[in-house]
């Protein structure tokens, strides 16, 4: 199994699950929601709610949907391999949902960041820039070379 692809899929699972549901204790209201006239959509809507039950049956079409969100292509064999793994993950989330958090205050994130001070606006060039840039998979002169992007947007 392609580890990179698995990681991508896992990440997408997190996204689809919806941040507020994932990081907030059950039964607490999601944080204040910004109502705006722009078309914004929080991840906690639509798709996520369908996954919230531990008994949800994860279908191949769900795997494909996740793959699309992760911008990766999966072979039918890979879809087959992913399906039980993802089903298992949903089970774990289901277990998490059962934890009693009535006495725990709602939080947007793991609150171990403390009161980190802001940074002064003073430039400090990164010393190992060359070493870092040398690790870029492919370069062209001073540029990072990547497959043509935005093709479908511009043509």
């Amino acid at each position: 199994m392609h580890i990179l692809r698995e990681m991508m899929m896992l990440r997408e699972m997190m996204m689809l699950r919806g941040s507020s549901k994932l990081l907030l204790p059950i039964g607490t209201a999601p944080p204040r929601h910004w109502s705006t006239k722009r078309h914004m959509q929080c991840c906690s809507s639509s798709s996520s709610s369908s996954f919230s039950s531990p008994h949800y049956k994860f279908e191949p079409s769900d795997v494909l949907q996740l793959a699309e969100k992760a911008s990766i292509k999966l072979t039918p064999k890979e879809v087959e391999e992913f399906q039980p793994k993802l089903q298992q993950l949903i089970g774990w989330f289901g277990q998490l949902q059962e934890v009693d958090l009535d006495s725990v205050l709602p939080a947007l994130r793991a609150d171990n960041l403390g009161h980190r001070p802001l940074r002064e606006d003073v430039p400090i060039p990164f010393k190992d820039r060359d070493a870092m840039f040398a690790a870029v998979p492919e370069v062209e002169g001073p540029f990072v070379k990547v497959p043509k992007i935005l093709k479908e947007n511009l043509e």
Partner: peptide
């Protein structure tokens, strides 16, 4: 991951 995706066009679907 994203760097590798970008490296490998076969991985990227229509953006």
């Amino acid at each position: 991951l994203s760097l590798h995706l970008l490296r490998n066009p076969s991985l990227t679907s229509a953006s």
